[in-house]
């Protein structure tokens, strides 16, 4: 049952991501990308990470995609009319497909061994996913967490300076 569900959602994710790179109109690409993000959120739920799924939907499908669609509509981007360079498309696809087969080959050749941590579906159900993540974020990863705030500040200032004509 779980595997049937996985393969259906995986097929939807792959088809939607193919639509992202084949649609001529950027709006259609953006909407397909939203669907891909929803499929990934489904996988996070299947992997016992409900908080990641919520963050995926709110941050990616909500904030970032709204920003992208807003810019597409602001700039009034039309569908591509110029015929793409066939050689470039062929070369790019060849590189991508080659790297995919290489990665899959390495994946299927290797095996997963090594340490298993303390997290299990039982412990997630008992203490809660958000509490486990919060503990890790505010103890082991406190410094990266604080540096992230500086990164966001720099991004805000950079976006304002780039988009404004004269400060």
């Amino acid at each position: 049952m779980e595997s049937i569900f996985f393969f259906v959602v995986a097929a939807v994710a792959v088809i939607c991501s193919l639509l992202v790179i084949t649609c001529k109109n950027p709006i259609n690409s953006a909407l397909s990308l939203v669907m891909t993000f929803f499929c990934l959120a489904t996988f996070y739920v299947m992997l016992d990470a409900p908080f990641m799924a919520v963050t995926q939907v709110i941050v990616y499908a909500g904030a970032i995609m709204v920003l992208i669609i807003f810019v597409i509509m602001l700039l009034n981007v039309k569908a591509e009319t110029v015929k793409p360079n066939t050689h470039a498309v062929l070369a790019g696809s060849a590189i991508g497909i080659f790297s995919m087969f290489l990665t899959v080959w390495f994946l299927l050749k290797g095996s997963l061994t090594g340490a298993t941590g303390s997290m299990s579906p039982q412990s997630i159900a008992k203490t809660g996913h958000i509490e486990i993540i919060g503990k890790a974020l505010f103890t082991d990863f406190l410094l990266p967490f604080e540096v992230t705030s500086i990164l966001l500040l720099v991004a805000i200032i950079g976006a304002v300076i780039l988009a404004k004509k004269r400060i």
Partner: peptide
């Protein structure tokens, strides 16, 4: 494997598309 497939599709898109917003997506 699913993740590898999605990553490769993204790579193909970056290498073949010419619209900057689509490349960004």
């Amino acid at each position: 494997v699913l993740s590898a497939i999605l990553f490769s599709i993204g790579t193909i898109g970056v290498l073949t598309r010419r619209n900057a917003i689509v490349i960004f997506m």
